[in-house]
Design a binder for these strands. Structure first.
Lengths: 334, 334
DNA sequence: ATGAAAGCGCTAACAC
DNA sequence: GTGTTAGCGCTTTCAT
């Protein structure tokens, strides 16, 4: 068992007081260069690392960011988390993860934990745009940035993509490919992503003068089985195009199409929302709306860190561009 | 800004000493039932949550597990992390994530951080089986369990699958399908997974009396481009079967095959290591070695928690079964 | 500019 | 069994 080296050890080695060591370590300017050097040398010599617990007990602040998302198992969130992680790490913060499975109770519990643990800030992907428990955090002045989704009516920073526009463009692309009956595999409208993507799809139909047939929309959870079920429903509707509202739903859709012997690109033009690395392993490769997931995470963390540092900014609603990547699953030239 | 309620507030409300509150909260048995109830009532009434920083400063222990893996972006790790997470959460621990990108320097830095932060335990997927920095942790009596991979020569608990056997069976399956020249897209032999899977492949060839042609093995990093490059090499070798050593390499392999107009199942029998949810979205669906990733994570966390609680156990080397899931990409009946 | 001293909230001896 | 007390390692007044 190693003896822990404390700030007093450093102070003794550098022949200064513990207070001075603390000042040096926290970048106070009012320390004589000579003492500074002695302190730094001692720190290096003893390989000293400040005790985080003692520090946060004293300052009532930690260097921990909470990341509360629905499910780390979804590759979409994974890449965002990675972006948050990297940005946090760079600033000396660490990241603790919590999965809510879109369950409001779990979300609330984790938010409470974040408050109790006095986390420096929280990244949240809210399970619902209307019900929220962030007041626990707001009351304690803990900054929150929502990621991927927004909270309606709450004055909270957010980082999202332009879901409406991206869905509009994807639908437009299918129309350009000659599709006239485009099925939409929709997610839950309780999330802002679910509702905005649906709205974009409908708007594109209207813009092209196509009927907005409710039969062409089937919705479900943002999960594989949700996509499977919705697609199965739509197959009865004589569709000539299919647009799935997220990556997991796309998997379910492709499975169902495959099971019915329907080949994307040949028999049906298919577009998915969220571009993942395996899209290119498919035959034909998948046309998909690509979101800058890593950058979303990075930007979220950067914004959160600015709030943590106390910067005064107006409410931020960062919207990053999602772009359609056209491959072959949506082309109908045969 | 909310005022923080401390243990003294609870003590005052319950008309006992702070020490008694502490005893109740930590499950000491030597507290009179009556006082216990008063304390619990006060805790509930004040909605009290102990301050983690103060607690760990005092006890020199946290309720945080470090999870140090190569890349959270890989769906394989993702599911394991989820398993760790859930088990940890259940025991009142939280999880902090760190990505090493298979970089030994990063790994060492994170291990140091885990030690400095006095994390309760660490789950590690070592970038190398031989070089390691876990002594920082061992010296401080911080338990470590390696996950997915082992550390050679280090007396550390591990949870893995039987990579040798799984690779053996996958290869055997290809041989049964009539393959005689099976290409192997290999990962780095510096990892135990990389070397054991290669060994299993070779052993199966030998067992079937097939020549162990080194030309049939091409190796690279456990990444998409690694799989692409290795597969491109193997295409010059007149192979009739292909086995890729991990999920990302499989993506690269499928891409390369697709680009050459080679269809899995029809022109070439293909098996991948790691079964991921999109395997069924492929046409034909992918035959793959399925690992119980979530369970691996769970078991790892459970073992780690037992070590944290100080249970005396012999060195644990838990090996979970990976099983071949046969779909159509490996069948050659046409 | 630097040091001495107090105290963050909690638990673990120790005393009763 | 329960309370009193000391102190974990750090930062931050307050003196000097």
């Amino acid at each position: 068992m190693m003896p822990t080296t404390t700030i007093r050890d450093v102070a003794a080695t550098a022949a200064v007081s513990a207070a001075t060591v603390s000042r040096v370590l926290n970048g106070r300017v009012d320390v004589a260069p000579e003492l500074r050097d002695r302190v730094l040398a001692a720190v290096a010599q003893l390989n000293y690392r400040p005790n985080g617990a003692a520090r946060s007990l004293r300052t009532r602040a930690t260097t921990v960011l909470g990341v509360i998302i629905s499910d780390i198992t979804n590759p979409f969130f994974t890449s965002m988390v990675r972006g948050v992680e990297d940005a946090a790490q760079e600033a000396g913060y660490s990241v603790v993860l919590a999965n809510t499975d879109e369950d409001l109770d779990k979300e609330r519990r984790y938010v409470e934990v974040a408050a109790a643990e006095q986390m420096a800030g929280v990244v949240l992907s809210p399970a619902s745009s209307s019900h929220t428990s962030i007041s626990y955090l707001v009351d304690r002045n803990i900054p929150v940035v929502t990621i991927d989704r927004r909270l309606r009516g709450a004055p909270v920073d957010s980082v999202t993509v332009n879901n409406f526009r991206a869905a509009f463009e994807a639908t437009e692309h299918l129309i350009e490919q000659g599709c006239r009956r485009i099925g939409f595999v929709a997610g839950p409208v309780t999330t802002t992503t679910g509702s905005r993507r649906l709205a974009g799809y409908k708007a594109a139909l209207r813009a092209a003068g196509l009927p907005d047939d409710p039969q062409l929309v089937a919705s479900g959870e943002f999960r594989i089985d949700g996509g499977r079920a919705a697609t199965a429903t739509l197959l009865g509707q004589h569709i000539d195009g299919l647009f799935a509202a997220n990556n997991l739903m796309t998997i379910g859709a492709l499975e169902t199409l495959g099971a019915h012997g329907i080949e994307p690109g040949r028999d049906l033009a298919v577009v998915g929302f969220d571009d993942i690395n395996w899209g290119t392993a498919l035959r034909p490769p998948l046309t998909a709306v690509s979101q800058p997931t890593y950058e979303i995470g990075q930007r979220t963390a950067e914004l959160l860190l600015r709030r943590i540092r106390g910067e005064k900014l107006p409410l931020q609603r960062i919207v990053l561009p999602a772009k359609l990547v056209i491959r072959e699953s949506s082309l109908r030239h045969r």
